Simulated assay, not measured.
Amino acid sequence: MDAFYASVEQRDDPALRGRPVAVGGSRERGVVAAASYEARAFGVRSAMPSVTARRLCPDLVFVRPRFDTYRAISDEIRAVFAAHTPVIEPVSLDEAYLDVTGNLQGLPTATAVARAIRAEIRARTGLVASAGVSYNKFLAKVASDFRKPDALFVITPAMGPGFVEALPIGRFHGVGPVTEAKMRRLGILTGRDLRARSLDDLVAAFGSAAPYYHGVARGIDERPVRAHRIRKSVGAETTFADDTADPALLAARLAPILDKVAAACRAKGLGGRTVTLKVKFSDFAQVTRARSLPDPVADRAGLEAVSLALLRDLCPLRRSVRLLGVSVSALDHGPAEGPRQLGLAI
């Protein structure tokens, strides 16, 4: 979906159409969850601090997120997908991979399926989607971003290797800002440069990610579309209205975050063996602390005990805190049967 959260807000409020819109925190606090294309023209991006976004675009309109609305629309969109294929791998509320090898409508090509899906999404939701069509997940992802917004782009098997060679390394899905900077330091600026490196060289520089980079540099990606993608973590975080270094106040501010995480675990029947505390300071520096347990934990009391212990380990704090987050990972996808005894002393 193109600028999904912001596009929903512009659809539902005509006064926002054509204006730079940021969905997320307030003008002074928080971060941008999504930016309209009008805002992106000023350099506003998701995950950007709100104060930075305001500096880049003084006329930026901030809108509080409505996640229940976004989820409901996402369900509508997935219903459109399901009419064409059962092999759907959701990535987020606004993105998914589809294997349309055996599409349910009997359309002759993947391009025809993509064209039909985009038209149906617009008819049902009034929103615009972009689609990438190719013979593997990496190239389909690259194609989906290539001419956004409102685009359909196809990379055929004959085009694949040559297309990748000319691709700037920052456009490679799976190459984030840190990895891009490292590749640039090594003289890897394009797919052609990446392809010139041996697998051994890439392993020495990038470890376990090296086989993926080695393959996609040649237009090869053997990952299947997984219809039942397993959730890896459950979490929540909050940016505060004012910064504080007071341990008692921070402990109190953890309470609603823990409520959300425990409720999500309960609703999904999940527990996890690793609890992670995320702390972002007033200067935007960020640290995480994690503790792994012998048995899965999902209940509110267990999450609170571990989270407070991790917070205490960071004290005394030399800087004020603007954000706290808690997540549970190493998930047990069996039914959560209620409180479990923690195997550690606190």
Score class of each variant (00 low, 15 high):
232 K>C: 08
285 A>G: 14
211 P>K: 07
238 T>N: 08
228 H>I: 13
243 D>I: 03
215 G>Y: 06
254 L>Q: 08
224 P>A: 13
281 F>C: 03
214 H>Y: 15
273 R>P: 02
273 R>S: 08
260 K>P: 03
258 L>H: 12
296 P>M: 12
203 V>P: 05
236 A>V: 07
231 R>M: 14
275 V>Q: 03
265 C>W: 01
248 A>M: 12
230 I>G: 02
251 A>N: 09
250 L>S: 06
232 K>T: 15
189 L>T: 06
294 P>W: 10
247 P>V: 14
226 R>L: 15
230 I>Q: 14
254 L>D: 06
242 D>K: 10
221 D>F: 08
202 L>P: 02
194 L>S: 03
294 P>V: 12
223 R>F: 10
200 D>I: 09
268 K>R: 14
258 L>D: 04
293 L>K: 05
241 A>C: 11
285 A>W: 09
276 T>I: 09
262 A>Q: 06
287 V>A: 09
214 H>Q: 04
270 L>E: 04
262 A>K: 02
268 K>A: 15
238 T>S: 13
199 L>Q: 06
187 G>C: 12
204 A>M: 10
252 A>D: 15
212 Y>W: 07
234 V>S: 01
274 T>Q: 11
196 A>I: 07
205 A>G: 01
244 T>A: 10
233 S>D: 07
225 V>H: 03
277 L>E: 02
260 K>Q: 15
291 R>P: 04
263 A>Q: 14
256 P>I: 09
292 S>D: 08
242 D>R: 13
259 D>F: 11
190 T>Q: 01
261 V>P: 02
242 D>H: 14
236 A>T: 10
272 G>V: 06
276 T>Y: 04
274 T>L: 10
201 D>H: 05
244 T>Q: 09
272 G>Q: 03
261 V>G: 04
250 L>P: 00
194 L>N: 00
287 V>W: 03
264 A>G: 08
198 S>V: 07
249 L>V: 15
268 K>N: 15
251 A>K: 13
189 L>V: 11
226 R>F: 12
289 R>G: 00
225 V>P: 03
208 S>T: 09
256 P>F: 12
276 T>R: 01
203 V>K: 04
265 C>D: 05
267 A>G: 10
260 K>C: 12
219 G>W: 05
214 H>R: 08
250 L>E: 07
276 T>E: 05
204 A>T: 11
279 V>Y: 04
251 A>C: 12
259 D>V: 08
293 L>E: 05
290 A>E: 15
241 A>K: 12
264 A>C: 09
255 A>H: 10
253 R>Y: 14
244 T>L: 12
231 R>F: 11
261 V>K: 01
287 V>K: 04
238 T>F: 07
256 P>G: 06
187 G>D: 11
197 R>C: 09
202 L>N: 02
239 T>W: 07
291 R>W: 11
237 E>P: 00
247 P>A: 10
202 L>I: 00
290 A>S: 15
266 R>P: 01
238 T>Y: 00
209 A>W: 06
286 Q>C: 13
230 I>M: 13
198 S>G: 12
232 K>S: 11
218 R>Y: 05
284 F>K: 05
243 D>G: 04
270 L>F: 15
234 V>F: 03
198 S>F: 10
246 D>H: 08
220 I>E: 13
205 A>L: 06
287 V>G: 03
223 R>Y: 07
280 K>V: 13
201 D>W: 11
264 A>T: 02
206 F>W: 00
222 E>L: 14
